[in-house]
Computed example of a mutant assay.
Amino acid sequence: MEQQDPGYFEKAETMLRQYIGDRMLLFKLQASEKSARLTAVLVIGLILLMLGFFLLLFISIMAGYYFAELTGSLFYGFGIVTAFYLLVMIIILLVRKKHLQPYITNMVIRNIFDKSTDDENITKDQSN
Rank of each mutant, 00 (worst) to 15 (best):
E2A: 00
Q3E: 03
P6C: 01
P6S: 02
P6V: 02
Y8Q: 08
F9E: 04
K11D: 10
A12S: 02
M15F: 09
M15T: 02
R17L: 07
Q18L: 09
D22E: 01
D22L: 03
R23A: 03
M24W: 02
L26M: 00
F27P: 00
F27D: 01
F27A: 05
F27T: 01
F27V: 01
F27S: 03
K28T: 00
K28R: 05
L29P: 00
Q30S: 05
Q30M: 05
E33G: 02
E33C: 06
K34H: 05
S35A: 13
A36R: 05
A36L: 04
R37P: 04
L38E: 04
L38N: 04
T39F: 06
A40H: 06
A40Q: 09
V41I: 14
V41N: 09
V41L: 14
L42S: 03
I44N: 07
I47M: 08
I47V: 14
I47G: 01
L48G: 03
L48H: 02
L49S: 11
L49Q: 10
L49E: 09
L49H: 08
M50S: 04
L51F: 09
L51N: 04
L55A: 14
I59G: 13
S60H: 15
I61H: 10
A63K: 14
G64V: 06
Y65N: 14
A68C: 08
A68W: 11
L70V: 12
T71E: 08
T71K: 09
T71C: 10
T71D: 08
G72H: 12
S73T: 12
S73L: 13
F75N: 15
F75E: 15
G77V: 10
F78Y: 12
I80S: 11
I80Q: 13
T82F: 15
T82L: 15
A83K: 05
A83N: 07
F84S: 07
Y85D: 11
Y85F: 15
Y85L: 13
L87S: 07
L87I: 14
V88L: 15
V88R: 12
M89N: 09
M89I: 12
M89V: 10
M89C: 11
I91A: 13
I92M: 12
V95W: 07
R96H: 15
K97P: 06
K97Q: 13
K97T: 09
K97G: 06
K98W: 08
L100E: 02
L100G: 07
Q101A: 10
Q101P: 02
P102T: 02
Y103E: 10
Y103S: 11
N106H: 07
N106C: 06
M107V: 11
V108M: 05
V108H: 05
V108T: 01
R110I: 06
R110D: 13
R110Y: 10
N111P: 04
N111C: 14
I112C: 04
I112W: 08
I112V: 13
F113A: 09
F113S: 07
D114R: 08
D114E: 06
K115T: 11
K115R: 13
K115C: 05
S116C: 05
T117W: 07
T117D: 04
D119G: 00
E120I: 07
K124W: 09
D125S: 07
D125P: 04
Q126H: 02
N128A: 09
N128W: 06
